[in-house]
């Protein structure tokens, strides 16, 4: 807010300067500067390709974009996490759970065979400094089978940040800074230590992001 209040008078001074120049010009034409209207909605275009990507979910509205993390069809994984940075003007919002990540139910987050509703699940998220969303959801029990990644594995959501005005047409940058999954093969409890140590690794993935425009 303070930045804007300082900048607006400066713009006004520049505009006055231009007007003064114009008035001294021999040309009778004057230029009318019409500022772009403030953006009120979000428009997202899905990325191309069939690899890891963030695609728009059908539940999205004009003001709240819900993105699904989708992986390559046929690739089995046990959980995923990523850090997504957004430029100023939008904010990451939460779901009914209070978390900024929504479990779509593909990954089996509970203990194998458990029907305990209080069974602690490995799902978390937050927004770090720099408008970086950090989320992850993982199967904690290796007895749960790995899941096919070619479906919506989890969701995040984005909305306009009312504290920052964006002009209609402004492009919002979304950058995946880091993304990892738990691969299907993380070793078996019966493996030797060397094999286990070698296989117990997160796998880096590259997540494609579409184009986000404020309108």
């Amino acid at each position: 807010m303070r930045k804007r209040s300082l900048l607006l008078p400066l713009c006004a001074v520049l505009l006055l300067g231009l007007t003064a120049c114009s008035s001294s010009s021999s040309s009778p034409d004057t230029t009318v500067v019409t500022p772009a209207p403030d953006a009120t909605t979000l428009a997202y275009t899905d990325p191309l390709g069939s690899g890891w990507r963030l695609v728009k979910d059908g539940t999205s509205t004009s003001t709240r974009l819900v993105l699904n993390l989708v992986g390559p069809s046929g690739l089995k994984t046990r959980g995923a996490g990523f850090n997504l940075q957004a430029s100023a003007g939008v904010k990451f919002t939460t779901f009914d759970s209070g978390l900024p990540i929504n479990d779509t139910g593909v990954y089996q987050l509970h203990m194998a065979g458990s029907t305990d509703p209080n069974d602690l699940q490995a799902i978390t998220g937050g927004v770090k400094k720099g408008n970086i969303l950090s989320v992850g959801l993982y199967q904690k029990d290796r007895d749960q089978a790995a899941q096919d990644s070619g479906v919506a594995l989890c969701q995040i959501s984005i909305a306009l940040d009312s504290t920052v005005k964006l002009s209609s047409g402004a492009r919002i940058t979304l950058s995946v800074l880091k993304a990892k999954v738990i691969p299907e093969d993380i070793g078996s409890v019966t493996d030797d230590l060397w094999t286990l140590d070698k296989k117990m690794r997160m796998a880096d993935i590259s997540v494609a992001v579409g184009t986000l425009i404020a309108q």
Partner: peptide
């Protein structure tokens, strides 16, 4: 060298593993 939600992954795949 980063503390973030991605770090929950190794905790998950080490859950109740009794070795390594």
């Amino acid at each position: 060298n980063q503390q973030d939600a991605v770090d929950l992954g190794p905790i998950a795949f080490s859950w109740y593993l009794t070795q390594a």
